[in-house]
Write a protein that binds this DNA or RNA. Structure first.
Lengths: 349, 349
DNA sequence: CTCCTTCGTCGAACCGGTTCGAGGGCGAAC
DNA sequence: GTTCGCCCTCGAACCGGTTCGACGAAGGAG
């Protein structure tokens, strides 16, 4: 079931079969039909490894996955799904690489062994050895996120600074004066994760601009940490009336902490942040948030990579996205109705 | 930077370099060290395509992903993560295939073009053309889930029948008599999804055994559908006091619907089901549920596949898992404390 | 009737590894 | 001093495609 077999049965040479399939040289109608008939009969498909060896391209892109052991968030799933889908539309496969540690084994596999034509990197750090390494090699790649100095590289990113600032302004406009910020875990900040740092910057600057009193927290990527973090917030400053979070996975715990503390959302306490819409709509009340357009980002990353592969030497391009805040049900005016309404038999969740 | 270059610089033949690397024939210490030095200097790594072509194995396994366009659930992410991680431990890469439609394009790519040595399939149906097709070809594969007749095949599965029954018994033991079942979407049932059918079976039989009054529902995989479904349940039978769900993605909506209807969980209404622990712990109150051990299932699937690849002709093996119900906070006795306790100022979420 | 194109096809080389059979060098046994 | 055997290394063939140069047949121009 290889090309020689097809050639033999069709009574032509191997090269003719190849040309009939690729169309790179003219083949007579008669011959082409004869070959096609044999191929259909036998269900022949050319061997991907042989093809990759011959023309130097694997038709596969690598998706460098955050290090395993972390808790994966829903956002990451959305990235993966959209990347796979977009790649399929361009006839590319996606190879998953659980890399993260710099130039580790699986990273070497992808590049050194030429398993992929290009790569998409997730979970970018401000200083990122992987990105530097790829740039040095001039290996075709696109990052989802950007380093401290993204000039001259290919990337798709979110304007975390602006998004966090927008959250602050939203809360300030509602009259909130004492606001907490719930960031990603300590270890991710130390590792230099882009979203955590840029989000914190945007929050801090906007809060200073509006003269807010703020406290910032780092919080583990799980509900239990979220709950603990919220208790800490209310312990440190019981007068806090709102929070901004980048921590999707802790969200359920933050809500639970508020419920346990007897703070009703949004009457007594407002919550907002930067979260994938799927999650924002899962919690009750639904979260007012800057929706991370994960699906669009994945798709755009693939499109950029394909462009880079098809046009080597093209000028670097990027997309910086800043989705608007979707108003849902988790924010309200500071102070709330302050019992102007009767304490109706509220239905707790 | 190919094997010939290494050979030339080390002053040996290409085959000697190959043997030095693979160890399949003895090579003198002196020669081996000389070769190793050159390899280290140049950072040489053998080309994966060439190697795959020569020895017929790609060191890659395919993960056949549910069709895109579906909403991905957290459970799927856990499967993917654990499969990638387990595969890396065996020095295999993972190629993602967004297949699902029977014998479609990307399925053909994986098998026909020999991109992978074996495959792991997710989202199995009771009658599954993909599984039949692979069995016919005797292509090494393992399914996460099992068909109606899994005898003689390799799989890792969950005993959905037993799990749903355990949920029913748990509720019946607490005194609930009118219970609803919230299944996956209509279209997945029609497609024959295993979990939806076996879960429904287990629920129905156990409910009959315990003499419960039940209603069953199909519900879209998103919060909005969950909320609508809950409204329907209370509309159809306001005396319903509990529900069992297989629908992770709708869970947030079910909770929201209960809150809107003024039913407190678990005082007025109990909720349980089969859900990944990560989600069960995210909602408030935390869900009493049979935790799907997604991480373990992914790992076992890889282990089985590797075993099958390493020992062609080995007797088919499988793992049927039935994790116990984790008691959390979403179920309670039917009728509840019925205001024996004072209506404390409950904190609504 | 020749000469020159054009068209369609073929054979051979190549991509970068692996593997098999053979052979050179050397020490031990006779 | 042969002969045998072992250890190590080499050359060649092969995996299954792609691609280049060449060549024969047919057709048009002179």
């Amino acid at each position: 079931m290889n090309i020689g077999e097809i050639a033999k049965r069709a009574g032509v040479s191997r090269s003719t079969v190849s040309y009939a399939l690729s169309g790179k040289r003219p083949v007579s109608d008669e011959t082409r039909e004869k070959i096609q008939r044999v191929i259909d009969d036998l269900g022949y498909r050319p061997n991907a490894s042989a093809r990759a060896l011959a023309n130097g391209r694997t038709s596969t892109i690598g998706l460098v996955f955050p290090p395993a052991g972390n808790h994966y968030t829903g956002m990451q799933l959305d990235f993966i799904g959209s990347v796979v889908e977009a790649a399929a539309a361009h006839d590319y496969d996606v190879l998953l690489s659980p890399s993260g540690v710099d130039s580790d084994r699986s990273f070497q596999r992808l590049l050194g062994e030429r398993r992929v034509d290009g790569a998409i990197l997730m979970e970018i750090r401000l200083q990122d050895d992987r990105v530097d390494h790829l740039a040095e090699l001039d290996f075709p790649s696109v990052t989802i996120g950007r380093t401290a100095r993204p000039e001259g590289t290919w990337w798709v990113g979110l304007d975390h600074t602006a998004l966090a600032a927008a959250c602050v302004h939203h809360l300030a406009d509602l009259g909130h004066r004492r606001v907490a910020f719930v960031n990603r875990p300590e270890q991710l900040l130390q590792a230099g994760y882009e979203s955590a740092h840029r989000g914190l910057d945007g929050f801090t600057k906007a809060a200073a601009e509006r003269g807010l009193t703020v406290r910032t927290y780092r919080c583990g990527d799980d509900p239990a940490s979220g709950q603990a973090c919220l208790e800490q917030i209310l312990h440190d400053d019981p007068a806090t009336t709102a929070l901004v979070t980048l921590n999707e996975a802790a969200l359920g715990g933050l809500y639970r902490g508020l419920a346990h503390a007897g703070r009703h959302v949004p009457r007594d306490f407002s919550v907002t942040g930067v979260v994938a819409s799927r999650w924002a709509e899962t919690v009750t009340p639904q979260l007012t948030a800057a929706d991370v357009p994960a699906e669009e980002m994945g798709r755009r990353a693939v499109d950029l990579l394909i462009e880079r592969l098809d046009h080597p030497g093209a000028a670097p391009r990027h997309h910086l996205l800043a989705p608007p805040i979707s108003l849902r049900a988790s924010t309200g005016p500071a102070g709330g109705p302050s019992f102007a309404e009767p304490p109706t038999p509220v239905s707790p969740s």
